[in-house]
């Protein structure tokens, strides 16, 4: 197995040009973060604080900032990015969407089909995404990210606007996928349950410009993560005052 990729971030300044009448807002000012290889790091913060902005800088979509973002182990890692919305091509079938970033080989096709089967979606491969529920579309977006065997996985509130049951199923699925295909994960959310269920480390963001107010190692066992009571207890202990 390839060595895992870590991440070192130092944002000296990220400011958006002011929109119309709103004043200029500094999103980050001297923000630092190190992500260890193989960790599942969760950034927890209210909406509007700059979580998506940070992921866009890491993914290279946004280069308009001063600072540096470096990958450890692999200078140009393969990146899976699960966006806040599924961002699937509506005019391509589920399987074609997953194949999109892969080389056009028979082996890649087999990987994609197996992945869909593992994720319980083998019957959807020839369906166009808009005919699927949002929960299913998010599942496809997750499959697309895993299919290219990423070195690092960025996830932007991938379970938002789903009902609790569907979201829970997807969380379980993600945990299972990560057990089979370990990868460094940076997950951002405003939902602390997401964080506690899955993360090995939680960083709570607050303020403007955003900075870390808490940095917690989550020592919960696999069993405890599946137990609502344990999660609520953890929430009360570490996160109550920040939410």
């Amino acid at each position: 197995m390839a060595a895992m990729t870590g991440l070192e971030i130092e944002i000296d300044d990220k400011t958006y040009a002011p929109l119309a009448s709103a004043p200029t807002r500094r999103i980050f000012d001297g923000f630092q973060l190190t992500v260890d290889p193989g960790a599942f790091v969760c950034l927890l913060g209210p909406s509007g604080i700059g979580k998506t902005t940070l992921l866009n800088m890491i993914s290279g979509l946004d280069t308009d900032y001063s600072g540096r973002i470096e990958f450890r182990g692999e200078p140009r890692p393969r990146m899976g990015y699960v966006f806040q919305t599924p961002r699937l091509l509506p005019w391509r079938t589920v399987l074609e969407n997953i194949l999109l970033p892969l080389p056009s080989t028979e082996a890649a096709r087999r990987t994609a089909v197996n992945l869909l089967t593992d994720m319980g979606m083998s019957d959807t491969q020839d369906i166009y995404p808009e005919r699927l529920s949002l929960g299913m579309q998010r599942r496809v977006a997750l499959a697309r990210a895993f299919a290219l065997e990423p070195d690092i996985l960025l996830m932007d509130e991938p379970f938002v606007s789903l009902d609790e049951t569907t979201a829970d199923k997807l969380r379980d699925l993600l945990i299972e996928m990560l057990a089979q295909r370990p990868v460094t994960v940076l997950f951002v959310t405003h939902d602390s349950r997401d964080a506690i269920r899955m993360a090995s480390r939680i960083i709570v963001l607050s303020g403007s410009p955003a900075h870390a107010v808490k940095d917690i190692q989550v020592g919960l066992s696999h069993g405890e993560r599946l137990d609502k009571g344990a999660i609520e207890a953890f929430r009360g202990r570490f996160l109550a005052q920040s939410q």
Partner: peptide, 19 residues
Amino acid sequence: DLLEMASVYRIGRWRTLRH
């Protein structure tokens, strides 16, 4: 959003144009 997806997943110019 879709163009950003294409760029993050590095699908290349030709696939971006075609798909």
